[in-house]
Amino acid sequence: MNSREYIESGILELYVFGKLSDEEIAEVNQMAEQHSDVREEIKAIELAVINLSHSVAPHLSATNYEKIRTELLGKHKVVTMKSKSNWAQYTGWAAAAILVIGFGLQFYKLNQTNEILNNVSTEKNLLQESVVDLELKKKESDEVLAILRDTSNVAVALTGQQVAPKAFAKAYYNKATKAVYIDASGLPTPPKGMVYQVWALKLEPVLTPTSIGLLDTYATSTTKVIKVENAEAPQAFGITLEPAGGSASPTLEQLYTLGKV
């Protein structure tokens, strides 16, 4: 058998992975001494094992990888070996490389599993937040519907004034409970540092404004229907734009809407 036929027989792969008998190992060593292409093929197979272990197990430390690599590359001198002890040392490193590949695959699969679990947990949290948000919106909508359907409530249209002619709002006033709700959906978004303030007005015998609250939840309210303080027999309602925190008396130059009960 010539060297090419010997290489193609597959015996060199078994030699590198330690699957030959002592007699077969001795035969390979003899062929390697006599034929340079056999020696080169053994080196190529060993390098393939090294590269495979490094690419499949990327988490192997540089120190351990170099140690294994050095040992396997040192095996290039195996063609002159005559004793069994050096071969046993080589096969030990080859087994270590195979173990590293196995551990690397297991570690990679574990990381993938953990990543999937983290993604599922994140999606679950987002879903729970969405459900809570929908429940809050439904609750607000139900409250608004209850206000609109309550025949005890008087709807008072508040029309835009000189500072904001296109603005509008609506007050829902319950004469029995004195409760007041303001639908502020027709008001423009207040500038930063400003807030809408609601006034219950008595027109006779003299104009008397009484603050019944701030629409300070305007930005966060989804329905823009906001409950303010109770009012005692108001004759009109007005809404002004005031500095954050409100004012003791209405700024008439910033009167946005006004309407009689």
Rank of each mutant, 00 (worst) to 15 (best):
M1F: 10
E5M: 06
E5K: 11
Y6I: 03
I7K: 06
E8I: 01
E8D: 10
L12E: 01
L14I: 00
F17I: 07
K19D: 07
S21Q: 05
E24D: 12
E27Y: 11
E27A: 14
E27G: 11
N29H: 12
Q30Y: 13
E33G: 13
D37L: 09
V38M: 06
V38R: 03
R39D: 03
R39Y: 08
E40L: 09
E40A: 10
E46L: 07
A48T: 08
I50D: 03
N51K: 12
S53V: 03
S53Y: 04
S55A: 07
V56D: 02
T63F: 10
T63D: 15
T63W: 10
T63V: 15
K67M: 14
I68E: 01
I68G: 13
E71R: 10
L73N: 14
K75N: 13
K75C: 11
H76E: 10
V79K: 11
S83M: 11
S85A: 15
W87F: 13
A88S: 13
A95Q: 05
V100W: 11
F103Q: 12
L105K: 10
K109S: 10
N111L: 13
Q112A: 07
E115Q: 12
I116H: 04
N119G: 02
Q128L: 15
E129Q: 15
V131W: 07
D133L: 14
L136K: 15
K137G: 04
K139M: 12
E140G: 02
E140T: 07
S141H: 05
D142V: 13
L145N: 15
L145V: 08
A146G: 05
I147Y: 07
R149P: 00
G160N: 09
K166V: 00
F168K: 11
A176G: 00
A176P: 00
T177D: 02
K178W: 00
L187H: 07
P188C: 09
K192L: 14
G193I: 09
V195R: 06
L201T: 00
E204Q: 14
P205F: 10
T208V: 05
S211L: 04
G213L: 07
L214Y: 05
L214F: 04
V225F: 14
E229Q: 14
A231C: 08
P234F: 04
I239H: 04
T240L: 03
G245C: 09
S249N: 10
L252W: 15
L258A: 06
